[in-house]
Design a protein around this nucleic acid. Structure first.
Lengths: 348, 348
DNA sequence: CTGAAAGCGCTTACAG
DNA sequence: CTGAAAGCGCTTACAG
């Protein structure tokens, strides 16, 4: 008298029997494989519909694909990643692929463990957002599973695809804008990184920042502040810089998220923004638009990045091996945090 | 000459041969099943280590568990969910379970599709955060898969567990606080919901708000504003309310996220906060602490909610069937957005 | 305590 | 174009 759960699952075999065809035939219809007549396909589709058949991804994965894509996010707190996910979702909407997310909390050890966990679950492909891993580790991962990176500038030759905005250009746009507004002591607030992380977008922004400062003759005013990306460490670094003997006139932060913390510190110190100090972020997340923030930022079109990454990944799963690198142009969005103040143009 | 990929995967059979035992024995060690001698276990563990064996979750799932838990988030943009995830992760850290996230964008149709996708992937259990589904749909889901809800108050009898903060009490704390500060025309800004969504936390907050207003004699001042949770709709509703003939003196928003939009509108309208209008949120997310927001809010300990949900889910997977409902006490965190103004205590 | 065999629900060659 | 059979890597009864 086994009552519930005993309503025998609808499998590919049930469908085959109902349609009066072989199991292999149903499998072919499922995969849109070639070599099935229109009539057979129609019969099978009717039965699938009637029986409300759902293929078990886990079983498909034993021989073929799981139709599951693993998305690795460093940090769910940064709203920029929501934009990326919107793009990924819309690219995958009409496909059989289902994106599933893992959160690494920006720790490379967790990243590696997550990739292992995703491999154990036979993900068909991986999108890694801002990974902290070493180049060698990335190569090993991509060797096994089709992989696309977002926010990580790859070496010349790689076995994965990459999608980025032009981070050096983005930083250049910020520096030029601030210089035009009359700011000279422009600092860059970056994450605390080690040498293995030069490929990260934030390093690229730093390179662009330093080059732009030099190019417009402000090289001697360039100053990079580094802090772990916790609120506490960020605030300490900002407070320290703003209270130093020769405080920056403007602080360009590697992401909006951090810029909001700096804005908070400036307010706490009684500084006027942008009169006493200008603040600029990166990513143009939704928070920039709020009147209490009015944060100048660089729009790098997170949605486009996500969409392109998903598109490239599916291509790669389908067999492409030549690496592609998709680059989006950054766009400066000026708001009150860096504009409107009456500053005199620097003497020189 | 098949070169790469041909390095034959290490399977349970490889391990069995290496250890000189049966495949079944390795499986038992893997599952910590009873009936294996210490020596056999030791031998197997040495071989697993040596061969760097990783069981394929997908294959395990064919007969047993996949050791994968599906977490359904309505919206990755609300930073409150990051707190929940920290709790989930820490509860699962030392287990074999891997949480994987799906984002529903607050649409019940996507929620249902996501649950289907997760079932196709044989998730061992589900944590649904703030689901919009109907009670009947939830019951069907929980019948099939062990399920825990966060932020959704369940009916008396249910076949799933629930973890919540006491939303009615939270709303009461806010109303009392605002009344004490001298505000009388206190409005509540809620989502636009239909009747089937009474179980949602926001509805519970509304009930608590209305009851508290009545209890302290402000019933005639109670006013519920409803808006879709897009920035645009939220701003329109806030603007409309604040510019009406008898604008609210305080606006209590169902979540921080929305309160920040209202704060922005108030600033845009040239209103002083909290002198002209007080604003209060819910969730006490990290943004509340920023000086430019200084948002009074209710802390409902997202981390604790996530931790307890994961704990209850594992218990349920292990066989518990009696439903549990875990409730966290809300805590009011007062900041400048509702305090510090010199308001006279209401006449009566 | 230990192991040989069947089976989970699919896909993949391979015949017909 | 169609199908019977083997197999993916595990777990589950069931014998021994």
């Amino acid at each position: 008298m086994a009552l519930r759960k005993k309503q025998a699952r609808v499998t590919i075999r049930t469908v085959a029997e109902d349609a009066g065809v072989s199991v292999a035939a149903v499998s072919k219809v499922l995969r849109n494989a070639y070599g099935v007549s229109a009539e057979l396909r129609a019969k099978v589709e009717v039965s699938m519909q009637k029986l409300d058949y759902r293929p078990l991804a886990v079983a498909r994965g034993m021989r073929g694909q799981t139709y599951t894509l693993g998305i690795l996010l460093p940090d769910i707190r940064n709203p920029f990643f929501a934009d990326i996910m919107m793009g990924v979702n819309s690219a995958l909407e009409r496909t059989q692929y289902q994106p599933l997310l893992g959160i690494s909390q920006s720790a490379s050890s967790i990243e590696l463990a997550l990739v292992d966990a995703m491999n154990d679950r036979q993900m068909d492909g991986l999108i890694l957002v801002g990974p902290r891993m070493l180049a060698g580790e990335l190569a090993v991962i991509a060797e096994r599973t089709p992989t696309v990176l977002i926010g990580h500038h790859p070496p010349e030759q790689s076995n994965f695809d990459a999608v980025n905005n032009d981070d050096q250009l983005g930083a250049t746009l910020v520096v030029r804008h601030l210089a035009e507004m009359g700011y000279r002591r422009i600092a860059f607030l970056n994450q605390l990184l080690d040498d293995s992380e030069r490929a990260l977008v934030t390093s690229q922004r730093e390179i662009g920042y330093l080059a732009a400062m030099a190019n417009i003759g402000l090289g001697s005013h360039a100053r990079v502040i580094r802090a772990l990306q916790t609120p506490r460490e960020t605030q300490l670094a900002a407070r320290h810089a703003l209270q130093s003997r020769s405080p920056p006139e403007a602080i360009f932060c590697w992401t909006d998220f951090i810029a909001l913390e700096v804005l908070s510190v400036a307010r706490d110190l009684g500084l006027r923004v942008p009169e006493d100090v200008a603040i600029v972020g990166y990513d143009n997340t939704s928070y920039c638009d709020l009147a209490q923030n009015a944060l100048t930022s660089i729009d790098q079109s997170g949605q486009v990045l996500g969409l392109q990454a998903a598109r490239l990944l599916v291509e790669r799963i389908d067999g492409r091996t030549a690496p592609e690198h998709f680059i989006v142009a950054p766009r400066l969005v000026v708001r009150a945090s860096s504009s409107g103040a009456r500053r005199k143009v620097p003497a020189e």
